[in-house]
Write a protein that binds this DNA or RNA. Structure first.
Length: 547
RNA sequence: GCGCCAGUAGCUCAGUUGGAUAGAGCAACAGCCUUCUAAGCUGUGGGUCGGGGGUUCGAUUCCCUCCUGGCGCGCCA
């Protein structure tokens, strides 16, 4: 047992000794203000009521009963309304860095997932155009959430769902056909709801090249196939440029061809939760928390998108995913209730909260103090590719992850591309590069720094204590971020820790110090470098050796 | 009208799941380059946590209500 666990254990015994109810588990937290010590507990305040005594009185009693030796506490005091603050001996605190050095890349991983399988679905763009910035936010979020879950022991599948059936694809095919006819010398007539971007012309050119026998695109089905194929290829290139890899691409069209749509309808009808009205088939989703009943099959006999959505999520359950996380724009939030309702109506024993949704607010792109709304190729929106080309993959990832999904995101292109301390991703990577520079400069192989024989008590400077504590917080932070599905917590932690690194680096030297000090600081430098790299890795951002 | 999200320093945002005197970065101001990257560091000022009620030892956090902004409310996806 080490550090916090020993302290918690000793506190529990002290609580029992003064008559606390059985099962009392002391909570320990890091005080905001370092002057308050390394750890603090509100145990006395929570025990005040059951014991019928004043909080500070309880705190004094707890301290008297506490085996400070077993708890590894150098100093303890009662403060404020009844907090008990603890300070650990510098050596005891820093010695825990050995865990970082031992674990290396695995530092920060946990076991909450216990090998269970999870599915994270994100991006899921229709193959009707290049990816836009909203998809970019989803890509960054989804990939980081998948990494967070994986770090906690989940077996994660990253999945992309292509809506390659339905009205929008028909509009795409017609739009390309219109451009082909234009090429053939006829007047341009882009259909209602069609696509106007430059990329439609490129696809038309491609088709004309590939199918010289059909210059006007009269074979609409073939036009559709080529268009979908080209756009999927293009989106894949965008994702590759962003460094996102999917394990599964699931095609909506396959739900029709393998009969899953029909079998889902049949199952829902059999469940008794459907009814017909004016020729349309409804599912009574209001019975499962939705605010109105939903059409499954339209009067014209085709299905609404709602039905394949349900059929698709049934496959997730049947494929064994005990957990499914969907990352989507908040403009789709209306779908969450009905998809869940549809799954409940299936009566398959799927949990009511399945799937989980992570919804994110809109992204606006700013350049030179003005909002950027269009790209040349896509016409009506800014593409992910535009951003990646302009500011680089790492900056795009970080900027999409530094705000929680619930907040609207302003992407400041000027800031993202600046190579200065104002740019948070640069600042963090710089911290990693500087630590790497120490080893490079000293001709020291970091692999040789194992923590063995280090005199940890040498790390007694205030800046060192703060940095050590931040590094020790990392595993709990990652676990919490994974639990909450909130990667921005990692992004913020990285920025704060980078600041501590810069402060320490500036104030204290490593190379050229007396041997025991240098060894201890090298161990700290390596530990900090490791944890920064691990954190950046979770967000899909590189940790450069030099800038 | 209904639902979801947001409202915290001049600006952009955190706030460890209810804790102590509410934080960071920009911006402003004042400093710091013989030593591992000045692509950096140190310090100062700055607040009705949208308003008002409630819950309790204690609320930025939970509940109610109102105000403002965004997004939804389709036999589109």
């Amino acid at each position: 047992m080490s550090g916090v666990d020993a302290l918690r254990d000793a506190l529990g015994k002290a609580a029992a000794a003064i008559g606390a109810p059985a099962g009392t588990t002391p909570s320990l937290e890091r005080p905001r203000d370092p002057a308050h010590g390394d750890w603090a507990t509100n145990l006395a305040m929570t025990l005040a009521k059951p014991l019928g005594r004043k909080p500070r009185e309880v705190a004094d009693a707890l301290l008297a009963a506490l085996d400070t030796g077993a708890a590894g506490v150098a100093e303890a005091s009662v403060a404020g309304p009844g907090f008990i603050n603890f300070r650990l001996a510098a050596g005891d605190l820093a010695a825990q860095l050995a865990r970082v050095l031992e674990a290396g890349p695995a530092y920060g991983t946990g076991h909450g997932g216990d090998g269970k399988v999870a599915n994270v679905e994100f991006v899921s763009a229709n193959p009707t155009g290049p990816l836009h910035v909203g998809h970019g936010r989803q890509a960054a979020l989804g990939d980081a959430i998948a990494a967070l879950l994986a770090s906690q022991g989940w077996k994660v599948t990253r999945e992309f769902y292509y809506n390659d059936a339905g009205v929008q694809i028909a509009n795409l095919a017609c739009s390309v056909q219109a451009r082909l006819r234009e090429r053939a010398g006829r007047p341009l007539e882009i259909p209602e709801g069609g696509y106007h971007g430059e990329y439609i012309k490129e696809i038309a050119a491609r088709y004309a090249e590939e199918c010289p026998g059909d210059p006007a695109g009269d074979d609409l089905e073939r036009v559709r196939q080529v268009a979908v194929r080209e756009l999927r290829k293009e989106q894949d290139l965008d994702l590759r440029a962003f460094g996102v890899k999917f394990d599964v691409y699931y095609l909506e069209s396959s739900l029709y061809t393998d009969g899953r749509v029909d079998s889902t309808v049949a199952a829902l009808v059999r469940s008794g939760h459907t009814f017909e009205d004016e020729g349309a088939l409804y599912l009574r989703t209001t019975g499962f928390g939705d605010d109105k009943d939903r059409v499954m099959r339209k009067r014209d006999g085709t299905y609404t998108y709602f039905l394949p959505d349900v059929a698709y999520h049934v496959t997730k359950w049947e494929r064994g995913f005990t957990r499914a996380v969907n990352v989507q724009g908040a403009d789709h939030h209306g779908t969450t209730a009905r998809v869940r309702a549809g799954l409940q109506a299936m009566g398959m024993g799927i949990p009511a909260g399945y799937p989980e949704y992570v919804l994110h607010q809109m992204v606006t792109v700013m350049r030179g103090g003005e909002e950027v709304k269009i790209s040349k190729r896509a016409g009506s929106y800014v593409t992910v590719r535009d951003l990646i080309d302009e500011v680089g993959r790492d900056a795009v990832r970080y900027f999409f992850l530094m705000r929680k999904g619930d907040s609207q995101l302003v992407f400041d292109v000027d800031l993202a591309r600046s190579q200065s301390e104002e740019n948070p991703v640069y600042y963090i990577q710089m911290a990693h590069a500087r630590l790497s520079g120490i080893f490079r400069q000293g001709g020291i192989d970091p692999a040789g720094i194992t923590g063995a024989g280090v005199e940890w008590a040498r790390l007694d400077q205030p800046e060192e204590r703060e940095l050590v504590k931040a590094l020790l917080d990392f595993p709990a932070l990652v676990a919490n971020a994974a639990e909450a599905l909130e990667p921005h917590r990692v992004a913020n932690w990285l920025l704060e820790t980078a600041r501590l690194v810069h402060t320490w680096y500036h104030k204290h030297h490593v190379l050229g110090e007396p041997e025991p000090v240098m060894q201890a600081r090298l161990a700290l430098a390596k530990a900090a470098r490791t944890v920064l790299a691990n954190g950046l890795g979770l967000l899909g951002i590189s940790a450069p050796e030099r800038m």
